[in-house]
Amino acid sequence: MEKHVVVVYPHPDDESFGAAGTITQFREQGVPVTYLCGTLGEMGRNMGNPTFANRETLPDIRKKELKDACEVLDMELRMLGYRDKTLEFEDRSAVAEHLKGILDEIEPSLVITHYPEHAVHPDHNALGAAAIEAVRRMAPEKRPTVWAQAITNNYLEELGNPEVINDVSDQFDTKMKAVFAHDSQAAPMLGGGYDQKEVMEYARNMFSKEAFFIWNYE
């Protein structure tokens, strides 16, 4: 069993869409989980459906949604304080050192993050690369395993099959509760909520498995 799991993604909702089922599995085992969230997602285009946010209110709304989702998932939240859509321009070494300091404190046995260059969004690629570099800089005897999540359309062709494929069907309801905690984002992306059967059927097909590659530091 894992000692402590740290999840590193750049935006509120990345944790819910990407790994909420896996996070729930760990929490069901009694494993502590900490989410290091890079930004507030304040430059996101989605403003709710129907619209209820604007550019000025979105940061506070997404922060509250993030806290609500983390409460659903029963995990600790730490905000890294970076600005949305700028992570690719941050000094990679400085971000890695920032993350390393937190990882040295927590001493996790597993880190979950995005697979660089296979994570669609520049923020995903940049923070994933920084997280992987942070772990590389740790003392080998304290270095956690890294699970890297690829989400590009062609990742199977380029990377092969992921080593970890978690069936999270039993955790699906918790995952979707966390996803819909991000109301400003989930409703526009999924086109509805719990009360729409077709939405939930689509989500069950899409989100009942979560896959990760084990990063090789050799």
Score class of each variant (00 low, 15 high):
F17V: 06
K175E: 00
D123A: 05
G160T: 01
I102V: 12
T145H: 15
I102D: 12
N154A: 03
M47G: 06
V135K: 14
V31G: 09
R92V: 01
S184F: 12
A19L: 10
R55Q: 03
F89H: 11
E97C: 04
L87C: 05
A178C: 10
L80Q: 10
R136T: 02
L110G: 06
Q171Y: 15
A69N: 14
A20F: 07
I165T: 15
T57N: 11
I102W: 01
L77Y: 07
F52V: 11
Q196V: 04
D91R: 15
E117N: 04
D195A: 10
L73R: 12
F89C: 06
E198R: 13
L80K: 14
Y35E: 09
L159S: 01
D13S: 08
K175G: 15
V8M: 04
I112H: 09
T51A: 06
G192W: 09
D195Q: 08
Y115W: 08
L58H: 06
M176D: 03
E158R: 01
Y202T: 07
T22G: 07
V31C: 08
H98I: 03
R136I: 04
P59W: 13
V95S: 07
D167T: 08
L40A: 13
G30N: 09
L103R: 11
A19F: 11
N153T: 08
K197R: 14
I151N: 01
M176V: 13
E28S: 09
V5S: 13
D68I: 01
P50T: 03
R78G: 05
S109L: 10
T174E: 04
D68N: 14
P188D: 06
T86P: 08
H182Q: 06
R137T: 00
H124I: 03
Y217I: 14
E28W: 00
D74H: 02
L73Y: 06
Y35H: 14
H11S: 09
D173V: 15
E15I: 02
K85V: 15
H11A: 11
P140G: 07
L110H: 13
I23K: 14
N125R: 09
N153Y: 02
L87W: 04
